[in-house]
Design a protein around this nucleic acid. Structure first.
Lengths: 333, 333
DNA sequence: TCCATCGATGACATCGTTGTCAGTAAAGTG
DNA sequence: CACTTTACTGACAACGATGTCATCGATGGA
């Protein structure tokens, strides 16, 4: 039941050789005679021996082949797509992924960073949730590379992969303006992440550049979940002068928007940031980008650092594309 | 750059105490004087000391606080929901989740099991992808508990959590039959997993019980992705005598169905196994079940085994509910 | 024949931590 | 005062593997 797994020295004893010889045999090192190797492998098989990588890793270099990913809940398709990309890339290099959910909470995130560093992960990928000034200190932590995803900590030069937020929001803004909209509502998430802030700023800038102040009464930020988005948009549409178009700054909010618009006679135009499954079926115009690729790139950067790459921090930007599927092309009423 | 992180003995040296005293101080063990404890903690802070859990785990018991989850690609919402539930439950117990993607490939899955056991995970949760006869041997592997999710290995009594496939398919079948359908197409995934097999069997049984053989020409199995599902359903609808209703046996296939049905004048009725985001928006009738709960229960079973629970294997069944949203209520044409 | 070389093997230290046990000085007990 | 108890501390072994070095017999060249 609670028997300890067999150790290498038990294997060695059974094969009638020394510990070191057994080690050599099982690791395919040279200088082991055919017969000895055979006997060791048989003994290992019979005992059901399995290497203890805790011991090996401790002895050799002191790190494990683990890479940590700290993100929000995997139930959010954004995070799971990222995790999928990360995992795929890591696997190519024989690395394992440890996922930890911070619930987008700074406190918890911090303790997860600690826990993973204690585990001697080879690298740490982080989608920062809250205020991330603390990374100033922890970065370059005794050679453990950090890569930030989607939301680089403000004011910190570090390897990071992010989405072309400015470009994406400009595409959205231009698209709606070109459709003749002026009263455009912007429904955004909590502004504490740099990515949300960038989207809001980009949109604001685009409106200013186009000389359209009419959107300003319709700015709603701090909307963090689909239900709130649904309610917020319901309220917007109930105004005397309702917006003729909506721009939601992430997939969760777009979901809420779709619920709010369902069954409406003459729904406003809608563009959502982030593509999502079934967007084609429901005909939603989105600012799409490859989230899996975002994860993959982050893993690639990490792997290069693990491999010893030095040099200044790099930033990879994932491009966005506007995919017109109908909802963004509805004219103002 | 590549400096090794500080060790406890460096901390001890700096604080002018022995290694063991430093260990005691940092672990909050009794028999450390206030002043000594203070000095040790200061020294640790100054050096930026962080425990090496590889070493600790090796010394104490030889296992790590890691639990492995082997499943298909996290990009599939089913797997990511499961992973989310697992992670949440593990976190409550201070355990970390290592996710590994088998791509539903038996070979890869096997090697991942090995890799994780080498890492001395405390338990292993598996959503078996292929033929899983091999688990017969590996189970109870020197006290590492295995829990199987969604698809228990055929003929193996082991802890497992699964969905009420028989009940769910019967609900679906009954619902469509009650709506007056006879020519009902069953679009199913690869039959090599026990869950798919159970859904097909359940549906077959329900049709037999209702004395309806009319569905038989419309059975399609081995449909593994959304694109194939879309094509397969397109073909079905192009038949001289097309089915008046469709039942798809998982979320991926339902997605394909929705694409195939998009824009159709008089679409057939549709019921899909697995709930999905936006199902309410697109009005799809589904057999719903709580995938996150499935993960949570699996983690719970594993945790109990870790805690020393012995006893016969247990099976937890996650119930299903039919949620009528319109698509399943369309009458036969 | 002698000595360097080479293949094969094992003894021992080591990675960074914790468990065991022994030692010491101060405090409590009779 | 002698003796036990108590608080604190450190030396040392151990976890399970790998790296370093020494050893040994067989071979080969001079």
């Amino acid at each position: 039941m609670h028997t300890r797994p067999p150790t290498l020295s038990q294997v060695a004893a059974r094969a009638g050789v020394s510990l070191k010889t057994a080690s050599r045999a099982l690791n395919g090192e040279p200088y082991v005679s055919g017969a000895t190797g055979q006997r060791v492998r048989e003994a290992a098989d019979e005992l059901g021996y399995r290497l203890n990588s805790l011991a090996r890793d401790l002895r050799t270099g002191g790190t494990s082949p683990l890479v940590g990913l700290i993100s929000g809940d995997l139930a959010n398709p954004f995070y799971s797509a990222v995790a999928s990309g990360v995992e795929r890339e890591l696997r190519r290099h024989g690395l394992l992924l440890v996922t930890a959910n911070s619930d987008e909470d700074g406190q918890l995130e911090r303790s997860l960073v600690e826990a993973l560093l204690e585990r001697r992960v080879r690298a740490l990928l982080v989608v920062p949730g809250g205020d991330s000034r603390e990374y100033q200190r922890v970065r370059d932590d005794h050679g453990v590379p950090f890569v930030f995803l989607d939301r680089p900590p403000a004011g910190l030069a570090a390897d990071s992969v992010l989405i072309d937020n400015a470009g994406g929001t400009q595409q959205a803004a231009a698209h709606l303006l070109a459709g003749g909209h002026r009263r455009i509502a912007l429904v955004a998430d909590l502004v504490r992440t740099t990515s949300q802030q960038a989207r809001i700023d980009g949109f604001t800038a685009a409106m200013a550049a186009a000389g359209n102040p009419d959107w300003e009464p319709y700015l709603r930020t701090g909307v963090h979940d689909a239900a709130t988005a649904e309610r917020t948009i319901g309220d917007l549409l109930a105004l005397d002068d309702p917006p003729t178009a909506l721009f939601t700054t992430n997939n969760r909010l777009t979901t809420g928007a779709l619920r709010a618009l369902r069954g409406l006679d003459r729904p406003p135009a809608l563009v959502g940031f982030d593509d999502f499954e079934l967007a084609d079926v429901v005909g939603t115009t989105v600012i799409a980008h490859d989230m899996t690729e975002l994860g993959r790139q982050a893993a690639r950067l990490a792997h290069e650092r693990i491999g010893g790459h030095t040099g200044p921090p790099r930033t990879v930007v994932i491009p966005t594309t506007l995919i017109a599927r109908g909802s963004g092309e509805r004219p103002p009423r």
